[in-house]
């Protein structure tokens, strides 16, 4: 069954812009990205939107729908009523390029700052051996599709541009956790996480977890465990003393 929905879409660039109103046809089974494409085809041929797989796996079509960071392709129109006005804006934590397209290079900068996987010296890539229970904890984090919704919603950088230098954001702190929990990684990443990538800025308000389209428990399974590992290394005198006496590492 079709109906005409009221859409407000932000149009503009870094110099300025505004929310523009559209009345657009909606059909059963469609998602918001379908409606944006219909707008492009019928009313706003130059509307800029980034998209690719339309299956929630490429992470390209991140935007904000009624103020909530979402994937355009995974937001069903059936979640709205016919009377709802649907407001679509670009991600608000990153510089806008045009319309719904933002410059997400902040994330690429942060990705490059994380040292790569560091296996034991002398073990060639084909010779990695590990047990499943040792590696499965960090496999959850490999589900990340790099849509950057968590980076966008995190108030540490969303509301404070000046923190972008010192804070890697939840996606890359999760990457550090993934490597730190990896059974073959030998780099000490705990102090790095706190001193260089700004783990201490995280106040665990869990917005990253709330918006993750892959339902990764970023806060509970990555950020808080990393915070506890930092406590082991930097703030817990008993653990420090224990490590001095028993000299156990890499347990």
């Amino acid at each position: 069954m079709s109906y005409a929905a009221h859409f407000r879409v932000w149009r503009g660039d870094a110099g300025g812009g505004e929310l523009q109103d559209f009345s657009v046809e909606v059909n059963e089974g469609e998602v918001v990205l379908d409606i944006i494409h219909r707008l492009q085809a019928t009313q706003a041929g130059d509307l800029a939107v980034r998209w690719n797989c339309k299956a929630g796996k490429c992470g390209s079509c991140s935007a904000e729908i009624n103020g909530r960071p979402r994937l355009l392709c995974m937001t069903r129109m059936s979640t709205f009523t016919e009377a709802d006005t649907i407001t679509v804006t670009p991600l608000r934590a990153f510089p806008v390029i045009r319309d719904l397209v933002t410059d997400v290079s902040f994330n690429y900068v942060k990705a490059r700052e994380i040292p790569a996987f560091a296996p034991p010296k002398g073990v060639a890539a084909g010779d990695y051996r590990m047990e499943q229970i040792d590696v499965e904890r960090s496999q959850e984090f490999r589900k990340c599709i790099e849509c950057f919704l968590c980076q966008n919603v995190c108030h540490v950088v969303r509301d404070h541009e000046d923190n972008k230098d010192s804070f890697a954001g939840p996606r890359y702190l999760m990457r550090i956790a993934e490597l730190d929990m990896h059974p073959l990684d030998e780099m000490d990443r705990t102090k790095q996480a706190q001193d260089e990538h700004g783990l201490g800025y995280c106040n665990i308000t869990k917005c990253c977890t709330e918006v993750c389209p892959e339902h990764i428990k970023i806060t509970d399974n990555a950020l808080i465990p990393m915070k506890e590992r930092v406590v082991d290394r930097k703030f817990d005198p008993l653990v420090w003393l224990g490590s001095r006496i028993r000299r156990r590492e890499n347990v």
């Binding site: 904000e64 201490g200 800025y201 308000t205």
Partner: peptide, 24 residues
Amino acid sequence: YRSFWLSPPACAVAEPHTRYSGET
């Protein structure tokens, strides 16, 4: 942090503070 300090009051709702240093 969310409800008393409004940092942030809810996801994607701007907080009122001009500076933020978290738990550092």
